[in-house]
Amino acid sequence: MTGYARATGAVPGASFACEVKSVNGRGLDIRLRLAPGFDALESDIRQRIGKQVTRGSLTLNLSVERDGAGGDLLVNRQALATVLAAIDDLRSAVPAAAPPSLDGILGLKGVLEQRDRPISSDAEESLTSAILDAASRALSDLVLARRQEGSQIAAVLLDRLDEIETLVQRAEVHPARSRDTILAKLRQQVADIAADIAIPEDRLVQEALLLATKADIREELDRLTAHIASARQLINGGGAVGRRLDFLAQEFNREANTLCSKSNAVELTAIGLDLKAAIDQLREQVQNIE
């Protein structure tokens, strides 16, 4: 979701620059910093952003410079009155060798204001149109930059999915999942605990079946496989898939947790922990895409 773009332009009487940048964000957060006098463009610019961007924290800066030949220098009467009143209040309290000079008073911030001379309505309309066109061009370049970053992240996500799939396949064929392995382990445990007590074979088989049912991770493996296929389809399909991939990453993690809790072997638990690590890496990268 990160990117930067800049577009500039000029019309008779003014030049301008439009800069737009974006960083990662859970939703779409738009911040506009428009040059004074151009607040009326905010609604139009927000609509243009919303049509091209759906996620990220985006900032657009617009600066406008009028041609320096014109402009009026005006005295801010209110600011001047405030300064003169302050001088009168301080005259008796603060000794001064000489009274304040005119150029010193006019040099105070806010007393003199430079105001651009108004331009014709046709020129103003031309400037507005050119600024909106520049904003659209900057947004298009930003989207292109974000797509280039997204294509690189997509390759990383597919690598993580391959890693997750390999771990799922390892869990699928692990011998600890078979009823015969569970039965043999149960026999050994009984022999270690009560070697002199005879337990009927059918009772051992029933207990082994019960343990195998509790430790069955077939459902979790099937769901993980389905999630892998869905994630690949989303990535290869393109578009704004960040939120859906984020949801899938949560589901991946849920299944990995259940697999670890059902595990009846140290090796299977280790596979589950590796799964969680790979899923965490997947989810971290998902936060970077739209």
Rank of each mutant, 00 (worst) to 15 (best):
D103K: 09
R203Q: 10
P95M: 09
E149F: 04
I197T: 12
P118S: 12
V168K: 10
A191T: 09
S129H: 10
D196N: 07
L211V: 06
L167Y: 10
S136R: 12
L186K: 07
L90M: 08
D192Y: 07
L183N: 04
R160M: 04
R177Q: 06
E165R: 10
E207M: 02
P100W: 04
A98S: 13
L209P: 03
G110S: 05
L158E: 13
A184D: 11
L84P: 08
I182V: 15
P100L: 01
E207R: 02
V168Y: 01
D122H: 07
T82E: 08
T181G: 06
D141C: 03
A171K: 07
A130H: 10
D192K: 00
P99C: 02
D196V: 06
D122V: 15
A138F: 01
Q189L: 15
L210V: 07
A171Y: 07
D159T: 12
E113C: 09
R187N: 13
Q169D: 14
L127H: 09
A97R: 06
Q206G: 10
R115V: 15
S101D: 09
E207A: 03
A85S: 12
A171H: 08
R187L: 01
L209K: 04
P100K: 01
R160Y: 04
L108V: 09
S178D: 13
L102T: 08
E163V: 09
D180G: 00
D89L: 05
A85Q: 05
L161D: 01
A97P: 05
T166G: 11
A154R: 06
T82W: 00
E149H: 04
L139N: 08
R91F: 01
L157D: 06
A194V: 14
V190G: 08
D116N: 13
D103P: 12
D122G: 05
A176W: 08
A194W: 10
A85Y: 00
L186P: 02
R146L: 02
E163Q: 13
E201Y: 03
E125M: 12
L209T: 15
V205R: 09
V143W: 08
Q152L: 15
A154L: 04
L161A: 05
I153W: 06
A81F: 03
A194S: 12
T166E: 12
V111R: 05
D89E: 15
L142W: 04
D133Q: 15
